[in-house]
């Protein structure tokens, strides 16, 4: 069972319900949130936008890859879009498997690969400027 979504707001409490499974002895979840400082500059907010049709396709592929590789029982890949403030969750990935090694590794793969491939863009807004993250070398 896969939960692949782009949402306006992430509810972290639903992840356990999504991932709970009778054959799963291990459930691992990673939550990415808005941090207050980048390179000593105070962050006002992050703004996320996406090419939704393609992002969902890529998220689905990544989830399938993780399910195949680690024999997951359930997987969550959920990303938020719009304006997010400090401490708000922006992404949640989770994996549920018989034993903990598989779900820890799968969780790392899900977030690392999402960051490499999924067409979502983040703009950091500071008090005096805004910057598209990673756009320039």
């Amino acid at each position: 069972m896969k939960y692949i979504e782009i949402v306006d707001k992430i509810d972290t409490a639903t992840a356990y319900k999504n991932l709970s499974h009778p054959s799963s002895g291990g459930i691992c979840v990673f939550v990415g949130a808005v941090r207050d400082f980048t390179n000593n500059e105070s962050v006002v907010s992050l703004e996320f936008e996406t090419y939704k049709a393609m992002a969902l396709k890529e998220m689905d592929k990544i989830a399938d890859e993780a399910v195949d590789k680690w024999q997951l029982n359930k997987v969550v890949v959920r990303h938020a879009v719009g304006v997010k403030h400090v401490e708000e969750p922006v992404v949640i990935v989770g994996a549920s498997s018989a034993h903990r090694d598989a779900c820890f590794e799968a969780c790392r793969y899900l977030i690392d690969t999402l960051k490499e491939r999924v067409p979502i863009w983040k703009k950091e807004v500071f008090s005096n400027k805004s910057v598209w993250v990673s756009a320039h070398p």
Binding site: Y51, V90, R117, V118, P119, I120, K122, V133, S134
Partner: peptide, 24 residues
């Protein structure tokens, strides 16, 4: 879908520019 440089473009295709992604 990400497209290699040799992919042929057709009139009915949906085409998009994907600058460096920064989700998460």
């Amino acid at each position: 879908e990400y497209a290699d440089e040799n992919i042929i473009l057709r009139a009915e295709d949906e085409i998009a520019i994907i600058p460096p992604v920064s989700g998460g």
